[in-house]
C-alpha cells in the first residue's frame, strides 16, 4: 500500500531521516517505537507529506506522492491522521469539526456527513457532545473525536502520531480502546507510540527507529522477547 524508497529528510544541516526504505501492506498495523529524536514522528509525517522529504520517493496505492505534480490533497483524503495534541478546531462545534472536510471535499452531502458523524460518535460513545465545542471536552474525549474526524473521510490508512502522549494516564485507556477496535476491523494503521502494551497486543509488526534509521523490526512477540540489536535492548530495558 505504501512503498518508501531511500527516504531522507534534513532540517537545515540536521539529518533526521537517513535513507529509509520500507513497505507497508494493506491490513498491517505497524507500530513505530524509539527514543525521542529518533525521527519516528518525522517519518510518519513524511508519509502524508506534512514534511517534504529531502530525497527519496513515497508511493501510495501506485501513485508517487513525492512527485511535485501529484495532487496531495486527494491523497491525504485517503489517509487519516491523528495528532499528539488532537488539533481539533476550537472555533467549531464537534459536528462541524467532523463534517467540514467530507463536505468541503465533496465526498459527502451535508446530510450524509451528518449521518456519518452521528454514527461514528455513537460508536465512540460521545453522541451527547455533538453540539459542544472542543474546549468543553476532556483530553481523552478530544482525542476520540479527532479519531472520528479522521475516520469520517473513510480513509484507507490511519496515521497516529503519539496519540496518547499528551493525555492524563486515566484517559489513555479510552483512546487505546477505540484504536484497538479499529484495528480489529481491519484498518491499515501506522502508529508512533510509547505504549508497549498496545504494540504487543495490536501490532502486526514493530519497527524500532534510532538516529534516523530503522534499526530493527519484527513481529511483536519475537521483537519484545528477543531483541537483537544492543540499542533496542537498552531502549526496551528503560521503557518496560
Amino acid at each position: 500500500m505504501i512503498d518508501v524508497k531511500h527516504l531522507s529528510k534534513s532540517f537545515g544541516k540536521n539529518l533526521v531521516l537517513d535513507d529509509i526504505s520500507e513497505h507497508i501492506n494493506p491490513g498491517e498495523k505497524v507500530v513505530i517505537i524509539g527514543p525521542s529524536g529518533s525521527g519516528k514522528s518525522t517519518f510518519l509525517r513524511c508519509l502524508n507529506l506534512l514534511e517534504t522529504p529531502t530525497a527519496g520517493t513515497i508511493t501510495f496505492d501506485g501513485t508517487e506522492i513525492t512527485d511535485p505534480k501529484c495532487d496531495i490533497d486527494k491523497i491525504r483524503q485517503q489517509m487519516g491522521m491523528v495528532f499528539q495534541h488532537f488539533n481539533l478546531f476550537p472555533n467549531m462545534t464537534i459536528r462541524r469539526n467532523i463534517t467540514l472536510a467530507p463536505v468541503r471535499t465533496k465526498l459527502m452531502s451535508p446530510a450524509e456527513a451528518d449521518a456519518e458523524a452521528e454514527k461514528l460518535l455513537e460508536r465512540v460513545g460521545l453522541m451527547d457532545k455533538i453540539d459542544a465545542y472542543p474546549a468543553q471536552l476532556s483530553g481523552g474525549q478530544k482525542q476520540r473525536i479527532a479519531i472520528v474526524r479522521a475516520l469520517a473521510m473513510k480513509p484507507k490508512l490511519m496515521l497516529f502520531d503519539e496519540p496518547t502522549s499528551a493525555l492524563d494516564p486515566e484517559m489513555v485507556g479510552e483512546v487505546l480502546d477505540v484504536m484497538k477496535e479499529l484495528a480489529h476491523e481491519g484498518m491499515t494503521m501506522v502508529v508512533v507510540t510509547h505504549e508497549m502494551g498496545f504494540a504487543r497486543e495490536v501490532g502486526s509488526r514493530v519497527l524500532f527507529m534510532d538516529g534516523g534509521h530503522i534499526l530493527e523490526q519484527n513481529e511483536p512477540h519475537e521483537f519484545f522477547a528477543h531483541p537483537k540489536e544492543q540499542r533496542t535492548i537498552d531502549f526496551l530495558s528503560k521503557v518496560l
Binding site: D73, R76, Q78, M79, F83, N87, L88, F89, L100
Partner: peptide, 15 residues
C-alpha cells in the same frame, strides 16, 4: 496560530 491547526486541516485533505 498553532501550526497544528492548519496541519490538521491539510491532513484531512482540505486545500
Amino acid at each position: 496560530l498553532d501550526p497544528g491547526q492548519s496541519e490538521a486541516g491539510r491532513s484531512l485533505g482540505l486545500g
